[in-house]
Each structure stands twice: as structure tokens, then as C-alpha cells.
């Protein structure tokens, strides 16, 4: 890792990159932003199409408890990965299970779990913060560039490779399952297996983006680029690509700005993605879209 930082830092010294890249934390942050951006944009297209926004938020809320549980079991403050992945995966899989097995609507299941996970998280934090510093947790909630470590970057690299490959393999299938699970079954797919696989992918992406964007803001980065993209695209292929471009611009430009102004990276990244979104709203008529969607079928 060190030689990579030296190489990129060298470009900054020579004036090829802004001077801010002489700092290792900035290089780390930018690498993280470029790795996580496309994942958020890609996953976001499916989340928006399948109306899973608040499902994602629930996973994010689970991060509070995840960190607390990780700390309880003796994981270091800067990387409570077992606690985070463990707890968030359990929450996500359990929610999917309950949704499939009960007659409750998706919305109700999410509402119930969202509240419970948040309450449990706060409870756990109070229990655990007796013996550690609350500011570390703020980093989890709002994103904190400074706390990003080499290990985080390696974990992020691994996550983006795994998620990227699986996402490409199941994209068509998971879309079809979302449209109609029985139709997916009729076309020889395994809807339940695919649904769980996608839930695992979502969880990995959410947890991987915690340090850069923060648990409370990650939902925005999954939903807003895709929402912006759908304002100006005219088919599914464009939808995925434009969403990926929007989210990657948001994470990288947002990060750069957060280094210049002393605001948490997550907040600036969200602001940039929001600006893009409002831009697409303004530009919408240029892409032949009327203000009102005529929707039926």
C-alpha cells in the first residue's frame, strides 16, 4: 500500500494532482470513493426499481448495534467488521425471511424492524460507551475520512470485486424476480435464492460504505443517483450506467470538497449527489420527459 501512496503522492508534488493528495488519508479516501461509487450506483438501480429504499436504511441503522456488538466482543474500534457484517446480515436476512413467510406487507415489516434496530442500537451504544469514546461512533453515523485505514481499503477492494461480479451475474435475474417472482419461477429461476443473494450484496455495500458515507446517509447514495438517472434516461441500460456515473461523481467530488471544507465526508457527498439530482430535474424536459409520468399497466 505504501508504495502506491508514494506514487500518487508524488503526482501531487509534481503538480499533476491537487496538492491535497500529498496526504495519505486523502489518497485512501479517493481510492475508497472510486471503489464504492459504482457499487452504490449499480445496486441503487435495483433498489429503486424494487422499491427497497427503506430496506436499505434498516440495514444502515443496524450498523449502530453492529459496532456496539463488535466492541463488546473485543474488536478494535477502527474495524468492528465481524460485529457490523454479522449483525447487519442477520437483520437483513431475518427481514427477508419474515416478509416471505408472513402476510405482512413489505412496508410494515420494514417499519417494525427499522424502529427496533434503532432502539436496540441506541441501547447497546449506551451500554458500551461507558468504556469508550463516543466520537468514534459519530464516524460510523456520518462518515469520517480520517478514520479510514489500510485494512478498510483492502476490505473495500475485496467487497467491490465480489459484489461487482455477482451483481453482473444476477442483474437480469433479480430484476425479473422483482417484476414478478412467479414469472421468474416459470422462467426457470430460483426467486428465493436470488432474493437472499441480493440482500447479502446490499448489506455488503452498505457496511463497506459506512466509514466514507456513514450509516445514516448511505441510503441517500443508493437512492439519489438512481433517482436522478431515471429522470433523464430512456431504457434500462442507460439507467444503470448513468446511475453509476452519478454515484461515482458524488463520492469522488464530495470527498474532494470535504477535504477543502471541514465538513464530514458523508454530508458533502450527499450534497453533491443532491445537486446532481436537482440538475436532472431541471434538465428533464431536454431529454424528452414530461413533468408527469403516465403510468399504468
Amino acid at each position: 500500500m505504501e508504495s502506491l501512496y508514494e506514487l500518487i503522492g508524488g503526482w501531487a508534488t509534481q503538480g499533476y494532482l491537487p496538492a491535497i493528495f500529498e496526504h495519505t488519508f486523502m489518497i485512501r479516501g479517493m481510492l475508497a470513493a472510486i471503489l464504492i461509487g459504482p457499487l452504490l450506483g449499480g445496486i441503487g438501480t435495483v433498489v429503486v426499481t424494487k422499491k427497497l429504499s427503506f430496506f436499505t436504511q434498516t440495514i444502515g441503522n443496524g450498523a449502530l448495534s453492529g459496532v456496539a456488538i463488535g466492541l463488546l466482543f473485543g474488536e478494535p474500534v477502527e474495524g468492528t467488521y465481524a460485529g457490523l457484517y454479522g449483525f447487519c446480515l442477520i437483520v437483513a436476512l431475518l427481514m427477508t425471511f419474515v416478509k416471505n413467510r408472513s402476510r405482512l406487507s413489505n412496508d410494515t415489516v420494514i417499519g417494525v424492524v427499522l424502529a427496533q434496530v434503532l432502539g436496540f442500537g441506541i441501547f447497546m451504544l449506551v451500554v458500551v460507551t461507558n468504556n469508550f469514546n463516543i466520537h468514534q461512533v459519530e464516524g460510523i453515523l456520518f462518515g469520517s475520512l480520517i478514520t479510514l485505514t489500510d485494512n478498510d481499503l483492502i476490505a473495500l477492494g475485496l467487497a467491490s470485486m465480489i459484489v461487482g461480479v455477482i451483481f453482473c451475474l444476477i442483474f437480469n435475474k433479480i430484476m425479473l424476480v422483482g417484476f414478478n417472482p412467479i414469472l421468474a419461477k416459470a422462467r426457470g429461476l430460483r426467486p428465493v435464492f436470488l432474493e437472499y443473494t441480493f440482500v447479502v450484496l446490499m448489506t455488503i455495500v452498505v457496511v463497506a460504505s459506512l466509514k466514507l458515507i456513514g450509516a445514516l446517509l448511505v441510503l441517500v447514495l443508493i437512492v439519489v443517483p438512481a433517482a436522478g438517472a431515471q429522470n433523464i434516461v430512456s431504457n434500462l441500460r442507460q439507467f444503470v450506467w448513468v446511475s453509476i456515473v452519478f454515484s461515482t461523481i458524488s463520492t469522488s467530488v464530495g470527498l474532494l470538497l470535504s477535504a477543502i471544507f471541514p465538513i464530514p465526508s458523508g454530508a458533502v457527498i450527499v450534497l453533491v449527489s443532491s445537486l446532481i439530482f436537482y440538475g436532472t430535474l431541471v434538465l428533464r424536459p431536454l431529454f424528452g420527459k414530461s413533468g408527469v409520468q403516465q403510468g399504468q399497466a
Binding site: V48, T49, N180, L183, S234, L236, Q293, G295, A297
Partner: peptide
């Protein structure tokens, strides 16, 4: 088909 109808499919 169940999907957000503002998504251009």
C-alpha cells in the same frame, strides 16, 4: 409487474 413505474423499462 411490480416495479416503480417511473423507472424507464
Amino acid at each position: 409487474l411490480e416495479f416503480d413505474h417511473s423507472v424507464p423499462i
